[in-house]
Design a protein around this nucleic acid. Structure first.
Length: 134
DNA sequence: GCCAACGTTGGC
DNA sequence: GCCAACGTTGGC
């Protein structure tokens, strides 16, 4: 079981939209490192859903329900998608500011590699962030 | 709107 | 294979 973080601009594709649609295809990734992370995802893995640009906060968790397959929004076979469904909604979203100001989370990918849209989250980071919500 | 931090492209 | 120029992402 691995943990991930997926970024989306909420004005393009928000967590609320995913919830209203019950499941979603994570398409449009055009970066090798992000693509490699998509390929490494297994059914049942969990991922934080982060709103970039607007909100700048982790708003929920999604579950990977279908492993990677070619992205139909590109005719280039290098790119892939996964399918996700809503798994958990944070009672109170975790802001980037909160993550940045936490000594434990200084090495999280969200801070270290701010431009990457699909990244891994260490199990201890996942548990630690989830505990904020209780 | 600006800029830092990348990633990509293309000339050599 | 190097590197300059350019494009993109995302925080501020």
């Amino acid at each position: 079981m691995n943990y991930w973080l997926l970024k989306s601009e909420p004005n393009v594709y928000s967590f609320d939209k995913l919830k209203s649609e019950k499941k979603g295809i994570w398409d449009g990734v055009r970066n090798y490192q992000a693509r490699n992370n998509l390929k490494a995802m297994k059914k049942g893995d969990l991922a934080f859903f982060y709103h970039s640009n607007i909100g700048k906060e982790i708003v929920g968790i999604v579950k990977i329900i279908k492993e990677s397959y070619p992205d139909s929004t590109s005719d280039d076979l290098r790119w892939v998608v996964v399918e996700v469904e809503p798994f958990y909604t944070f009672k109170k979203p975790i802001s980037l500011q909160q993550i940045k100001s936490d000594a434990i989370l200084q090495n999280i990918g969200l801070i270290k590699q701010s431009r990457l849209s699909v990244m891994t989250i260490k199990p201890e980071e996942f548990d630690y962030i989830l505990a904020f919500d209780n």
